[in-house]
Write a protein that binds this DNA or RNA. Structure first.
Lengths: 339, 339
DNA sequence: CTGAAAGCGCTTACAG
DNA sequence: CTGAAAGCGCTTACAG
């Protein structure tokens, strides 16, 4: 079946394409009678406007691009879910891309999205990204861009984040309050802002409570996965027998650490207490269940789209876009890996 | 910055738009010299073809739609990852939508994708879907459609699946081989084909091995989540004290069951053995780790896109599309929840 | 080897 | 209230 066009409706009814177009869009300067006629026929013929033609004329596609570092990821899944739910509500579709934590891929994908002419871009940047010119390019091309979770402070766009430093401080303080005397930290990679901030929160909590900051107690995760958690826990137990608490950046890493400690017969939380970060589903299912910081992924996704939507609307009205940064609350979820 | 157009290049060079267009696409009937001139200038001006205009002319957008029941889901995440990786390789972008296991939403989303004129559709159908006319509509509109994992046998399109019956048989037989004498089954909802097939595989294994099929040992999960696993495990222990094995449709449900049994002090696998289905990451991290059927999500995603791509190409060449069904291998992963 | 022309299907400023 | 016309930016069959 060939799709129906405005032209066919116009010819059938013996009126102009212009009037058909206007009637369908309820322009006030078309008579009620004509509108009825047109709408009824359109309905009968199951008329659907050709989206490509509409895009070309209106210069927008009602489609946005989304780049995340990793799809198979509890936190990001929740963000994606929030984004597509909110986007759908506002009539926008979402193209999803995964950067694999690679700067090269991320850059390529931004250009891909720009060449596809998406109306806006939502991104959580890769650990490997230190140069931000590709993001500047997007903004220079007048494509609104909003960052979430893993952001670049230096780029002047809207951002939606949590207070990583404060959350990490809370997590570490919880270990201190529950009696830990020597607390290690498994941190994320050196680059992304959030792993820096979480480290700083840890450090400040240590120093604020009369403990000595010891850099040999800080392990740097590169992959931020289960295996690294296992490995570093094994190393830690071997090299620092007196450590009695660990604040770990990432639940997946924390679950790996718990697994290793269980295997080694180290009792959690009696000998070592553990606090994770992000509150992945599995953290409540393992033994012992993991105390962690809840990071509101779904909410972050919704809010990220809302910010972008605002900019999309502002752009249409040719208003200036004022970048804003929104901070979401986090909470400590107390479970059985801490006293 | 206004985007550069063919017209600008043509005017600058004093040649026609036609020639510029051809030169950029390396048509053989344009002189080498002109091509160089055009390409150099295009490069300098950072020319990007207007995707909307190209779409309108070529009647394709190099974009496909993807509908899955749930985004926050280990198996589907892996499928999505496979799909977008393969699609990107072939120059296609993927619009992602979540049906929430709702027929109504799924139908709306199919229509949304059709009105956006995606080149093809990939779908895993909702549990709530019993009527398939929306899918037929897509195919009648000449939009290639491929189903994966949760399919409708009745729809004549390409499909990519696993042999659920066989896998369930293998899982149940593993319980029998390890000495279980009375085996329960937590099945999925009544509608989707795969939960029917898994149930049938379970039943056949029971009957093939001289055991009595007892429908009171079959519990029907509606939500297929952690809480249902917990609930049914509690009920089972209360009502059927002699059950010593459970084959559970879905790792998430199985993890819930393990959690409940752990709380009740029922020893796994000594008193009750458990086999799950799907091999979610957390299944290897819990205590005891879960024996399960590995379902190759990433591979399924890649293969699903490949099938769709084939149909997209066939359609362009105006060849007939012959629907095919591809079956992927599954394997039993033996862990500590069975003897 | 080059280009004028038609056309994809729509929207909208303008004239009547 | 209606419609002719221009135009969005591209592609391609056709003529020369």
């Amino acid at each position: 079946m060939k799709p129906v066009t405005l032209k066919q409706i116009a010819e059938t009814l013996g009126i102009s394409i212009t009037t058909v177009s206007k009637a369908l869009k309820d322009y006030p300067d078309v008579s009620k009678k004509t509108k009825r006629l047109v709408k009824d026929l359109a309905e009968t013929l199951n008329y659907k406007p050709n989206a490509f033609a509409v895009n070309l004329r209106t210069r927008e596609s009602k489609t946005i691009g989304l780049i995340i570092p990793e799809v198979v990821h509890h936190f990001f899944s929740n963000v994606v879910k929030g984004i597509i739910a909110q986007a759908e509500k506002k009539g926008y579709l979402v193209i999803i891309l995964q950067s694999n934590e690679s700067y090269e891929l991320e850059k390529k994908q931004i250009n891909l999205l720009l060449s596809k002419q998406v109306d806006g871009i939502l991104i959580s940047i890769a650990n490997g990204t230190a140069d931000f010119s590709h993001l500047q390019t997007a903004m220079e091309n007048d494509v609104p861009l909003v960052m979430f979770d893993k952001i670049a402070k230096i780029v002047n766009c809207s951002k939606i984040i949590i207070d990583d430093r404060k959350a990490a401080y809370t997590a570490t303080k919880h270990l201190i309050d529950s009696g830990c005397k020597k607390i290690a930290h498994f941190r994320g990679p050196l680059m992304p802002q959030n792993s820096i901030d979480r480290f700083l929160g840890y450090k400040k909590a240590i120093e604020d409570h009369g403990m000595l900051y010891d850099s040999s107690l800080v392990y740097i995760c590169e992959k931020v996965n289960f295996d690294e958690g296992k490995l570093f826990a094994q190393r830690l137990v071997k090299n620092h027998k007196d450590v009695d608490g660990i604040f770990i950046n990432g639940d997946l890493v924390a679950v790996g650490a718990i697994s290793a400690l269980n295997e080694l017969g180290v009792s959690i939380p009696d000998q070592i207490s553990i606090v994770g970060f992000s509150n992945w589903f599995m953290s409540s299912a393992i033994t012992p269940s993991l105390t962690t910081i809840d990071q509101p992924g779904y909410k972050m996704g919704k809010k990220a789209f809302k910010l972008l939507y605002k900019e999309l609307k502002a752009k249409k009205r040719k208003q200036e876009i004022l970048p804003q940064t929104v901070e979401l609350e986090t909470t400590l979820i107390k479970r059985n890996s801490t006293k």
